[in-house]
């Protein structure tokens, strides 16, 4: 699980890339490079193009123009509210599905794939719930099972589409820790999120609103004008932080009492 890209080659390289559907562009001016092992926060309003970027990174859609190169096996961690809770599978079954990304079509996942799936579940801290029915798990646990599936697929680049949506504070913190550990292992993690303060703790941030607004390390890439451009008119002041001063309006603020130590 060490860093497979020992060279300095970036895992993702976007150059003048425009993305869209059936010839209609929805996301312009992508111009960025992501080195291996980075945690990249993707900020943007609903409809800003976050999911579209992920689709392009997995190869589901091709850029309308420009260049978008990905040098890594890639897996999407979908939003859990899109998975079926009444589905007759265990957590281990779901984690083992990741092996299908690698196996030739006639081969069924066997003992070694299930062992690998169990390792993935251990990595996300769910080994003792391997036999639980997927739909019986909490939202945060389901999210981590889907991450385990990506790990079984040997994904070097993990795309998490708003993984914090609907999580309680504890699950949220645990997921953040997991993201840190994945990156420490050399995996690249891109996380679409609505929480600016969260993205500030990661290595890189990409702000999207129909076009690339800014990219870079959070200290330089996040500023009041950038956030205004990213979220348009839907902004409010952050209490006590007037110098940064903006948050998306649909941001659901967690009280300090919920998360001591921040």
């Amino acid at each position: 699980m060490s860093n497979r890209h020992s060279s300095r080659e970036p895992v993702i390289r976007a150059a003048h890339a425009t993305l869209g559907y059936e010839g209609t562009p929805v996301l312009h001016g992508l111009e960025f490079q992501v080195p291996a092992g980075s945690r990249v926060g993707i900020l943007g309003p609903n409809g800003g193009g976050k999911t579209t970027l992920f689709r392009a990174l997995t190869g589901e859609i091709a850029p309308l123009s420009g260049d978008l190169k990905v040098r890594a096996t890639t897996a999407t961690v979908a939003q859990t509210d899109r998975s079926r809770l009444d589905y007759p599978v265990s957590a281990l079954d779901v984690a083992a599905m990741g092996a299908l990304a690698r196996l030739p079509w006639w081969k069924r996942p066997g003992r070694s794939e299930r062992r690998q799936a169990l390792e993935s579940l251990t990595m996300v801290g769910l080994a003792d719930l391997a036999d639980a029915t997927f739909g019986d798990l909490s939202g945060g646990q389901r999210q981590r099972v889907l991450i385990a599936r990506a790990l079984t697929a040997d994904a070097e680049l993990l795309l998490m589409d708003e993984p914090f949506t609907g999580l309680d504070a504890t699950s949220e913190q645990r997921l953040e820790e997991l993201i840190d550990r994945l990156a420490a292992n050399g995996r690249t993690v891109m996380i679409a999120t609505h929480e600016v303060e969260q993205a500030e703790r990661w290595d890189l941030v990409l702000c999207l609103n129909g076009e690339q607004i800014s990219f870079g390390d959070p200290a330089s890439a996040i500023s009041k004008p950038v956030l205004e451009a990213t979220y348009g008119g839907h902004i409010v002041e952050i209490p006590g932080q007037p110098e940064l001063g903006v948050l998306p309006a649909h941001h659901h603020h967690h009280g300090d009492a919920e998360r001591p130590g921040r």
Binding site: T58, S83, L100, W105, R108
Partner: peptide, 22 residues
């Protein structure tokens, strides 16, 4: 029997690229 795992994975969520070759 041969397709069991692929059927199960596609029914669960059918993101493209998640299953090799199919």
């Amino acid at each position: 029997r041969t397709g069991h795992d692929r059927f199960l994975a596609v029914g669960f969520d059918d993101a493209p690229g998640r299953i090799r070759g199919l």
